[in-house]
Design a protein around this nucleic acid. Sequence first.
DNA 1: AAACGCCGCAACCGCCGAGGT
DNA 2: AACCTCGGCGGTTGCGGCGTT
Length: 332
Amino acid sequence: MGRVPCCDKNGLKKGPWTPEEDHKLVSFIQLHGPGNWRSLPKNAGLQRCGKSCRLRWTNYLRPDIKRGRFSFEEEETIIQLHSILGNKWSAIAARLPGRTDNEIKNYWNTHIRKRLLRDGIDPVTHAPRLDLLDLSSIISSALCNPSTLLNLSTLKLQENQLFNPLLQNQDVPALLSQPRQFHNLVQQVPACTTATTSTGGFIDQTTQVMQAKVEGFSSNPTSTFNCQNSPENFVPSSLNESLVSLPNFYCNGTTTDPTVPELGEYSGFQSANNGYQNFSIDSVMSTPLLSPDPLNSSSTYLNSSSTEDERECYSSLLKFEIPESLDIDDFL
DNA sequence: AAACGCCGCAACCGCCGAGGT
DNA sequence: AACCTCGGCGGTTGCGGCGTT
């Protein structure tokens, strides 16, 4: 037996609330308190469904709602909490007195998300967007040139070497307890760029691309790859299939804020001893054309100041390991 | 001044899970 | 176990305001 709808749609009003309706709802709740939303509209003389009444009350009429623009501190808090909680708007709202989950969600989607994208930060992972790490082109290049496949297989990523020493010395929960510091840290992350690759062969391309990424990572305390040596951790069964998308900034299992739930509650967190977060390749693959900063759309990845030694060093840092059992057809 | 498009926000929809009966 | 209510979520829509042409 199917579930009955929350209300009878027939004859019930929809759309914007009138002041009279608001008054009826507020008056009724002031007298009887909220609750039993199903019967409330009938008892209050409203031609609305209970769900609509509940939303109107919780999102607009509740007396403790703070209206108006979000302050800079509130915005920082939202970003910080979102990096911990993900899209758990109600949990975020619970830590922002006077703000509702719907309001925060709208504000996130219309302001913060755009701002983060503009700053070159993936609003899902809170990591710098690695738009330029065009893995699909790298892989397809390798597939078109089987002689390079062997070279690709020798590439490995040693994630902890990519870490900015800044973060290695950071107590992340302590960092998060200082929103401004956290924010400044995030702001240090350079925007990702688009690039053209040279025609000098796959390894040269890869080296350049990877080098640019390393340059980005070198100042990036927030993320790195987690390409561990198993196909399920790195190689998707389909290029369009996302890996685990981790929305969070850090991976420690606890925070200094007792109001913040244990991070282990959220599946996206890594264990504390990893000291790094997973990186969503999906976020990279899905936003290749959204590089927000035209200033960074330089035609090359190569840093003019980098030396051959540095390039060699970077190449050795970036190692992908593709298991022998990998079926190339999976990529096709 | 009118038309148009974009943007922000309130509100809705469909679904799900928790908890109570 | 089945059903029901409620609250929460992500995604989406509709509309008013505003800027541009």
